[in-house]
């Protein structure tokens, strides 16, 4: 277990840890924004937007994440789009996770009785106000737990980026095994790190859930 404290392993580990957090946090942010937008599309009265939302979700929920990484890493440069490996990873993760966020939000929106939106519209609220002020806040509670599952999966999924030139936790493992450290020890520290991240996310979410339970 002592490998963490040999040579400059500790700083390597910290770099990986920070890499995973940066990657996950940025992707989570974009996935959330994207998911809200896609969910709004999917419940909007405009057929073109609905079709777009449906197509997006169908394509990206059913594409293996690794394939998406291949696309952003190898296809984009061919189309003369040159972005850093990190940006590419954030793009792949956001696009992928966003489609899951969208579906969770849409399911949550469907738990809100139709009469709520009708009342909002009858008072003169537009589509955005109806969704933002009345429907989404009420979908919130139903959405927190499943949204939690999506976001807890994100740091784990981000490990794929390690295979595409992004330095994150899993790259630490690669380095260590190249340096032929015992595989058990390196896995132990990695597992601990992922566990810490996952635990933090679920703590924040259950706090949020409790806060929302009070607010009604």
């Amino acid at each position: 277990m002592g490998i963490l404290f040999e040579k400059d392993n500790f700083s390597l580990f910290v770099r990986g840890f920070v890499g995973t957090i940066e990657l996950s946090a940025l992707s989570a942010l974009f996935a959330l924004l994207l998911g809200i937008m896609l969910a709004a599309f999917r419940v909007s009265p405009v057929p073109v937007l609905r079709a777009f939302g449906t197509a997006w979700v169908t394509v990206f929920r059913n594409t293996p994440l690794t394939l998406l990484f291949f696309v952003v890493t190898f296809m984009l440069p061919r189309l003369d789009v040159h972005i850093s490996s990190f940006t590419a990873a954030v793009a792949a993760l956001s696009v992928y996770t966003g489609s899951f966020v969208c579906e969770v939000l849409r399911a949550g929106i469907n738990t809100v009785p139709l009469g709520q939106a009708e009342a909002a519209r009858s008072l003169g609220m537009g589509f955005g106000q109806t969704l933002g002020l009345v429907v989404l806040p009420q979908a919130g509670r139903a959405v927190i737990a499943p949204l939690g599952s999506v976001f807890i999966a994100l740091p784990r999924n981000s490990a794929v980026a390690g295979a595409f030139n992004v330095f994150e936790l899993f790259s630490v493992q690669k380095t260590w095994s190249e340096d032929s450290y015992p595989i058990f020890a390196s896995f132990f520290w990695l597992a601990l790190a992922y566990l810490a991240i996952g635990f933090s996310i679920s703590s924040v979410l259950s706090l949020l859930e409790r806060r929302m339970a009070v607010a009604r």
């Binding site: 909002a120 009858s122 609220m125 009420q138």
Partner: peptide, 30 residues
């Protein structure tokens, strides 16, 4: 729509808002 008030069979008050906020919301936002 703001000029045509509607009252529903099932009330449809905004469940996440207080009574006062229910009456205030559209005045402010619309």
């Amino acid at each position: 729509r703001a000029q045509v008030g509607m009252v529903f069979q099932s009330f449809n008050l905004f469940a996440h808002k207080t009574v006062l906020q229910n009456v205030v919301l559209a005045q402010v936002k619309v």
